[in-house]
Amino acid sequence: MSDFFEMNFWEMIIRTTISFAVLLFLARLLGKKQLSQLTFFHYITGITIGSTAAEIASQKETPFIDGLISLVWWSLLTLLMSYLSLKSTKVRILVDDEPTIIVKDGELSVKSLKSARLHMDDLLMMLREQSIFSIQDVHYAVLETNGELSVFKKTAQQEATKIDVKADVSLPVFMPSEIISDGKIVQKNLLELDLDEEWVMRKLRKKGIESVGEVFYAQLQTNGSLYISMRDNGI
């Protein structure tokens, strides 16, 4: 009995490890589109691939090789459809659909709402999420293929830019970057910013800090100053 249990245990460990490695490889192969542009097609593809991997790892009744073949083949089909989508507009529309104009020239399209199967309450919620509480403030609203609503406000409702108010539009000296994390200098960011530890220490000493270890977190600001949070900070 113990030998049988031990055999099952190690079999599951091996199946899970191989499934994990294959899934990781396939996820890298499929690219970032699964996350950044999660259309319904990519959503069901991701769920199916994950479910197949889980089935291989946890179900002893599932033939291991058959499960791996299914997992790899499904991923290859996804890659094939992604490639065809890049080459053909018709295939792209078939796979991902196309954006739907919900509001045009300030007018709500009831027909588009129905074709997108979008309830009015849902539309109003999506507008409120963008701080828009009246449809009258919208010039164009487009329902994207990933379910997000892109909105172009009427000119009178648009926020003023720095150019509009004649504010300073010069480029920042630095990009906000993590300099110290949990009492340790982030060397990679210093290197990218062409800075060194001596520069960091000069900034710290100006604030009466003698050791990097006293700092919990420090972030470089656009003007070259440091935002510093000490270890003993409390609210």
Score class of each variant (00 low, 15 high):
residue 77 L to D: 09
residue 127 L to R: 04
residue 155 T to G: 13
residue 80 L to T: 10
residue 94 L to D: 06
residue 188 K to I: 10
residue 169 V to L: 04
residue 74 W to C: 12
residue 179 I to L: 02
residue 153 K to M: 13
residue 156 A to M: 13
residue 70 S to G: 12
residue 175 M to H: 11
residue 83 Y to R: 14
residue 111 K to H: 14
residue 187 Q to W: 09
residue 110 V to T: 14
residue 87 K to G: 10
residue 99 P to G: 01
residue 171 L to A: 14
residue 75 S to R: 05
residue 114 K to H: 03
residue 129 E to P: 05
residue 149 L to E: 03
residue 133 F to K: 06
residue 191 L to M: 13
residue 122 D to T: 13
residue 197 E to H: 04
residue 66 D to A: 13
residue 75 S to L: 01
residue 146 N to D: 07
residue 148 E to L: 07
residue 186 V to E: 04
residue 71 L to V: 02
residue 125 M to A: 10
residue 157 Q to H: 13
residue 92 R to S: 11
residue 130 Q to E: 10
residue 170 S to V: 08
residue 164 D to A: 05
residue 76 L to N: 03
residue 164 D to L: 00
residue 188 K to F: 12
residue 142 V to L: 01
residue 175 M to I: 15
residue 146 N to H: 00
residue 144 E to T: 01
residue 176 P to K: 05
residue 121 D to F: 12
residue 104 K to M: 12
residue 81 M to P: 02
residue 121 D to N: 15
residue 132 I to P: 03
residue 109 S to V: 02
residue 90 K to P: 03
residue 180 I to E: 01
residue 130 Q to G: 03
residue 139 H to T: 09
residue 169 V to W: 04
residue 67 G to L: 02
residue 183 G to R: 07
residue 193 L to Q: 11
residue 96 D to C: 08
residue 190 L to H: 09
residue 171 L to V: 12
residue 145 T to S: 00
residue 107 E to W: 09
residue 178 E to F: 14
residue 171 L to P: 11
residue 102 I to C: 06
residue 107 E to G: 09
residue 201 M to A: 09
residue 151 V to T: 06
residue 137 D to H: 08
residue 160 A to F: 15
residue 80 L to Q: 04
residue 143 L to C: 00
residue 84 L to G: 07
residue 175 M to E: 15
residue 118 L to F: 02
residue 154 K to L: 08
residue 93 I to C: 08
residue 191 L to A: 15
residue 178 E to C: 13
residue 100 T to V: 11
residue 107 E to Y: 13
residue 194 D to T: 12
residue 109 S to Y: 07
residue 76 L to T: 08
residue 124 L to S: 05
residue 103 V to P: 07
residue 88 S to Q: 03
residue 168 D to T: 01
residue 155 T to H: 14
residue 106 G to P: 06
residue 124 L to R: 09
residue 123 L to Q: 04
residue 100 T to W: 05
